[in-house]
């Protein structure tokens, strides 16, 4: 195990302690903030370590290129471009997720659907709103689909 891996374990350990009053940590907002900050730091350190290793490897490739007196090939350049384009798409997807968070649709199990149907059926038909009727029909269809998946 290298030094950075040990440091990561140590930082995450401190973060866990700070977060948990049962382990002697605080329950105050500042304790939780420091704990969250340490978690972020440990992620960054881990990414930084990976980035450092990757940068070192890449720098060696460039140094070898310089020693051979050659230019980057078309394939090498296209590979970088493709990686950058893929990363850009992921950034855009992350932006979309942050700016327009979507609620996960609630998935009900069979029992929950039966309860929902029973509750809605208890309401006299003439008193049910359109929305309730729609919800009832939806729940019945969902239950049917659950029982007969084919």
């Amino acid at each position: 195990m290298d030094f950075i891996s040990l440091a990561l374990i140590a930082i995450r350990g401190v973060s866990t302690v700070l977060h948990n009053p049962a382990l002697g940590g605080g329950s105050s907002a500042s304790s939780r903030n420091v704990s969250n900050l340490l978690l972020i730091f440990s992620d960054l350190l881990e990414e930084g370590d990976e980035a450092y290793e990757e940068m070192k490897e890449f720098a060696e490739t460039v140094a070898a290129m310089a020693a051979e007196g050659r230019s980057p090939t078309r394939e090498e350049r296209q590979f970088l471009r493709a990686r950058r384009a893929a990363a850009h798409e992921r950034y855009q997807a992350a932006k979309e997720r942050i700016l327009n968070p979507q609620e996960e649709p609630t998935v009900l199990d069979e029992q929950a659907l039966e309860t929902l149907i029973a509750t809605l059926e208890d309401i006299p038909e003439e008193d049910r709103t359109d929305e309730e009727n729609e919800e009832l029909a939806g729940a019945q269809a969902e239950l049917e689909a659950l029982r007969n998946p084919e």
């Binding site: 980035a51 890449f58 950058r84 990363a87 850009h88 950034y91 992350a94």
Partner: peptide
Amino acid sequence: TIWSEKGI
């Protein structure tokens, strides 16, 4: 490119 990937 490397830093961009690390960022995401």
